[in-house]
Design a binder for these strands. Structure first.
Lengths: 240, 240
DNA sequence: TTAATTAGTGTATAAATAACACTAAAACCG
DNA sequence: CGGTTTTAGTGTTATTTATACACTAATTAA
């Protein structure tokens, strides 16, 4: 290991920390941003809600571990997944030294694969503005950071599309931005900006509702050879 | 650990990965951005250059481990340090499963504490555009990512000041931006923008040189109670 | 048939960006 | 000692981008 001290081949003679992967799973449910939490059944933090996670296995990469956790909890695969941060304070777990690599996942609410859990389940979706508090371990901190990162990245990536179904209206997209950023956006400016970005593909479909019917669009995926683009809602406000 | 499977108190009965902390140490030497590398003396990757790092101890946090490594290599304390990313591919170390938490550090070149190593030393500063290749392990990847993060953060933080001495001229600051971003900036625009940001404090000192003497400035640190500010060189170009 | 509702467009102003021409103060050089 | 070179620093303007908000459009409800 990139280390100058003598290191025997059998590294495991040294005392080792445990490594877990925690996945902060976001989804848009009933037009509001939700996060999936699980209720702990035993000590420590018995009864408290926690971010789903588990120990890493020696034969899987960090991202593979995160995908495995995600699939165990939600049944979904092929979703957006990104490493958030690694938390390694000495006392974060009272049992043992545990280092936790946190990930963010964005899943579509329309996937039937998500088990919409009932009120009494030990796995539940919480709106991000109505979280139980405190969470187990240092999970308040992890979740706060995940939200901050989500908001920040929304502005310069096409991340928001990960939360939408195949077809959507421009105002639905705007609504996601508002949910995640936590503020109202101007309709006219949003229309103009998203159109100019050229990341939407018009479809012939319309959706009828109360007022004027709305056109449905599809996210234009980058094809090989296409110039890579990013869409930014605006320039300010970033993560520190 | 935030896990639903039965977990005994003695976690260490499970097979555990090793965890190291690697620190990508940047400094500005002779007006060029450099990075500190160490040469490996034994298998694996014997003779190749590597990012300094070492195993984490059970009684120190990740950041404490990074600061310890940093001090061991450079003798400096109290420098800018930031977690970069955690690398955990299964095969990145042929000896054992090793997960590496990478950090970025920025140190001032004028600190005499940095041992300026001679040509034959196994610890050496390399200009970022003249790196040895390939590095040991997956360190090419880690270093590339560190540079990308550094460039990206430069634009919306006061990071560049970490590389400068106490007193500096505005054109020296501009030069750092150019070094890290790898492109030329407009003098007039730079002057105006940095002045408007209000993050510089004028000093009575001047430095004489070849042409017109230049005024020296000092970075205005945030005092408690001050409104936090960030300086952005400009808005575009970010990390994906 | 009119009001309410949701969708979508247009426009005027302000602010940020970028390019570049200009002035200033010293050293260098015949 | 007077012009040239060198580095420092300011000003001016055109263009692009952001913001606020007024307007038109197409449907349902009453």
């Amino acid at each position: 290991m990139q280390d100058e001290r003598p290191v025997p081949y059998d590294i495991s003679k040294y005392p080792l920390p445990a490594v877990t992967v925690d996945v902060v799973i976001f989804s848009l449910i009933n037009r509001a941003l939700h996060v999936l939490l699980v209720q702990r059944k035993r000590w420590p933090f018995e009864g408290r809600w926690a971010i789903p996670g588990g120990f890493i296995r020696l034969d899987e990469s960090l991202e593979e571990a995160a995908r495995r956790e995600l699939e165990e909890e939600t049944g979904v695969r092929d979703v957006y997944l990104e490493q958030l941060y690694t938390f390694g304070d000495v006392q974060r777990d009272p049992r043992h030294r545990v280092i936790s690599v946190a990930y963010i996942a964005l899943v579509r609410a329309d996937a039937q694969t998500i088990r919409v859990s009932d009120e009494n389940s030990d796995v539940r979706w919480f709106p991000v503005d109505q979280l139980p508090s405190p969470l187990a371990f240092d999970h308040d901190q992890i979740l706060a950071y995940a939200l901050s990162r989500l908001r920040s990245k929304l502005e310069y990536t096409t991340l928001a599309f990960q939360l939408l179904p195949e077809l959507f209206s421009i105002l639905e997209l705007k609504h996601i931005y508002e949910q995640i950023l936590g503020e109202k956006l101007d309709k006219g400016n949003f229309y103009r900006k998203i159109k100019e970005a050229g990341i939407l593909e018009e479809t012939p479909y319309m959706r009828e509702g109360r007022g004027r019917p709305t056109r449905l669009w599809r996210f234009r995926r980058n094809r090989p050879g296409d110039k890579q683009f990013v869409f930014r809602w605006r320039e300010d406000r970033r993560e520190s």
